[in-house]
């Protein structure tokens, strides 16, 4: 692709591009994360699954011995770490799945609001048409 040439410049206009460049200079850019939300959701799911595995592993290890001293490491590694992973995973999962749902919900509300406004405007136009020509009753019958 050949780069297009700019049209002749006008000197009486402010240099918008220079101002834009100045404003962009402080922006944090340079890669960006593609789909950070999806990634957080995946991490949350993995953590919840890992917590179940940890708890089962802890129980399995602890059940293999009658010595309380040997059971404590299993309790800490399996039980406590599993619990922490479950809490963090659940928070991540709920935070990002709820965020996604609430965004959808708000967009849906805006969309319905617009449709409702369209219906009201259309109804008013039909009423206006009917008032202007009372003999034409078909105007009110239009959907």
């Amino acid at each position: 692709m050949t780069d297009p040439a700019p049209p002749p410049s006008r000197t009486d206009q402010p240099d918008r591009l220079a101002l834009l460049e100045e404003a962009l200079a402080s922006l944090p850019a340079g890669g960006g994360a593609h789909g950070p939300e999806a990634r957080a959701l995946a991490v949350g799911t993995i953590l919840v699954i890992a917590s179940v595995v940890l708890v089962i592993a802890g129980w399995y290890g602890a059940s293999g011995t009658l010595d309380v001293g040997e059971q404590i490491p299993y309790l800490i590694s399996g039980g406590v770490a599993g619990l922490v992973a479950a809490v963090i995973g659940s928070v991540l999962f709920l935070r990002y799945s709820m965020g996604r749902y609430l965004r959808y919900w708000i967009i849906r509300l805006v969309h319905e609001d617009r449709e409702q406004t369209d219906r009201v405007v259309a109804a008013l136009e039909r009423v206006e048409a009917a008032v202007r020509s009372p003999r034409d009753e078909r105007a009110l019958d239009r959907p």
Binding site: L17, E21, L24, A25, L27, P28, A29, G30, G31, G32
Partner: peptide, 8 residues
């Protein structure tokens, strides 16, 4: 404006 803005 010449600035890299991926992910800005």
């Amino acid at each position: 404006a010449g600035r890299h803005v991926n992910g800005a």
